[in-house]
Design a protein around this nucleic acid. Structure first.
Lengths: 342, 342
DNA sequence: ATGAAAGCGCTAACAC
DNA sequence: GTGTTAGCGCTTTCAT
């Protein structure tokens, strides 16, 4: 490799100035301190030599790496690419770079990766992995590491987070089903160790109560994870226990996909025999068979806001702690219909 | 933020040794140079103080950042998450970190991002963005930057690349259609500035010739991009120009999705009226309506191999230049069937 | 086997 | 307005 072989010293020599002066010129904030003519000389030299500042050296000196650690469970989960893209689009214009790592939801691995990132002197973190009582988050809070959570939330003072309004979104889903005429509505909840799972369940209950419907205790089944397989397993349990059910609100789209497969197994048609609503409106949810009615969350914006929030904190601004809730929106497609008469 | 406030010096002081010695202990390769007892003292001190080496400082000194730049068009394209994941899984165990950036296929932006990454002293690059006559790639080659291409290839000596066997994969697709009885097979080619588009087109022609079928010159339409929209536009042109066509081989799955939508517009049913084969077997291709028959490429392995190849080069090994072609595999689903009799 | 010292490339006091 | 100097935290000769 041919790294920035040419250093500031080289530039300074060519421009016949002191390295310090060259540094001032090449730094936007200090540029005004130097006489325009000298500045020009330095810039010419820099251009001619193809000078590229060594940001490692600068970071070592300034104690700011202009990089942030991003930890998510798995980039392969369709939820995350838009979020990550949003984060990057927030960071790049400000000269920040993302160091991306996948934790697979494994706390041990997560801890490891976090330490590695700290070793690399990231200026802050964006975490998409928070569980309800996340120890790492609590420790980060104590150590006052600049940290922003995205998608998932922890209910503790002093946390900065950007997340979808899961509870309200769940209400939108159920309202839709009720409006279609459904009364026996089941819910496949996400794991209770994630705020998303919990909040959507709460919203489900809210909505039912709001419509004066009693939640049948067979109506709610918790899936072991936000996956198709876990969703299928839970769907089987739900259908076995409560065959009267005519509509299912799934805690996310992958779970909904699991519901689809179980319906097919059982010879039930969607939406004729069973309506299904998902959550996330993940990419390609419109290409499923049938196209999935789902609660849309602005994934890209989630990332964008999280990135900006962190940047603001790093700039020394003190945005108030707390959770920013982004609005959801129900997207009605082919997986929901009125219940069968009779 | 509380970065690694505790430095090697602190550790050395507590252990009552010279910083140099502490460094030797904490470095696996030099550890044997120091007396076990002293080593133990140092490690105890490091543990007690919670020492975390500052890798920026180390990198500045050793001129190896242990980070690599990864440039892809867009993480939001379902092709890339598995590739990126593969890359990360190759890098992480060796202590390397990926700096991920999206170029949106914009050469200007790509250049910019590449410069930023160089400024951050990445040890090498993985590029998923190469076009057929990629200037940046050529320049990188001249400068002897450790570089590995992934997915897309450039046909030049000295390049290291890992890609799917597009040409052979295309043959698998067409062979399947011919075996079903199709004779009028169309192809929606990808952009000719990408090796993937070009190779798949070549494979399409190979296969037709192999079966003694003349390629009707209305049979091939080039899409402007690997997107659903571009695919739809090209599909319209193909259908208008050659209504006899009974099967379409699309250069990738997104294009196939565009074909789906045009078929729906035209009141044609898939696979009854028209068979469709895609390429990539992207995540959730099995959930499309109908489930898409597609040429599977091992995306994760693509990333894994690319990552390992780069690592090997960085380790000083000199793996032979050239392209590693990974095998594809046709996955038959519901979008292909024999042509309508008559 | 360890200490001493120099320096990676840069910025930021502090002079003048 | 610019030069001088001193490090950021680490590794690595070179001594001893």
């Amino acid at each position: 490799m041919t790294p920035s072989r040419v250093t500031l010293r080289d530039v300074a020599e060519v421009a016949r100035v002191n390295p310090g002066t060259a540094s001032r010129v090449l730094n936007p904030e200090t540029r005004h301190l130097v006489k325009p003519e000298t500045a020009r000389r330095v810039e010419k030299a820099a251009g001619k030599l193809g000078y590229q500042p060594n940001r490692l050296a600068r970071s070592l000196r300034t104690r700011r790496s202009h990089s942030v650690g991003v930890v998510i469970p798995d980039i392969t989960n369709p939820l995350f690419p838009p979020i990550v893209r949003g984060i990057e689009d927030a960071l790049a214009p400000m000269g920040y770079t993302a160091l991306l790592t996948n934790s697979d939801g494994d706390p041990v691995r997560e801890r490891e990766r976090l330490e590695v990132l700290r070793g690399r002197q990231v200026d802050g973190f964006i975490l998409g992995t928070a569980t309800v009582d996340d120890e790492l988050v609590m420790r980060a809070l104590e150590e006052e590491l600049p940290l922003v959570l995205v998608n998932r939330v922890v209910d503790v003072d002093g946390i900065h987070a950007v997340a979808p309004d899961d509870r309200r979104g769940a209400r939108q889903a159920v309202d839709h089903l009720v409006a279609l005429g459904h009364r026996n509505i089941g819910h496949i909840a996400g794991p209770h160790n994630a705020s998303t799972g919990l909040q959507r369940l709460a919203g489900f209950r809210d909505a039912l109560a709001g419509h004066g419907l009693a939640a049948d205790d067979r109506a709610i089944v918790e899936a072991a994870g936000f996956t198709k397989e876990a969703g299928a397993e839970a769907a089987r349990k739900l259908l076995d226990g409560w065959p009267q059910c005519t509509a299912i609100f799934a805690s996310n789209d992958l779970i909904a996909l699991g519901v689809y497969s179980v319906l097919a197994e059982a010879g039930l048609r969607c939406p004729d025999d069973m309506s299904v609503v998902g959550f996330n409106d993940m990419p390609f949810a419109d290409t499923f068979a049938p196209p999935l009615t789902s609660v849309h969350i602005p994934l890209y914006e989630l990332g964008l806001h999280a990135g900006r929030r962190l940047l603001e904190r790093l700039r020394g601004g003190s945005p108030p702690a707390g959770t920013t809730l982004l609005e959801t929106r129900l997207v009605v497609r082919g997986s929901t219909a009125p219940p069968r008469p009779g």
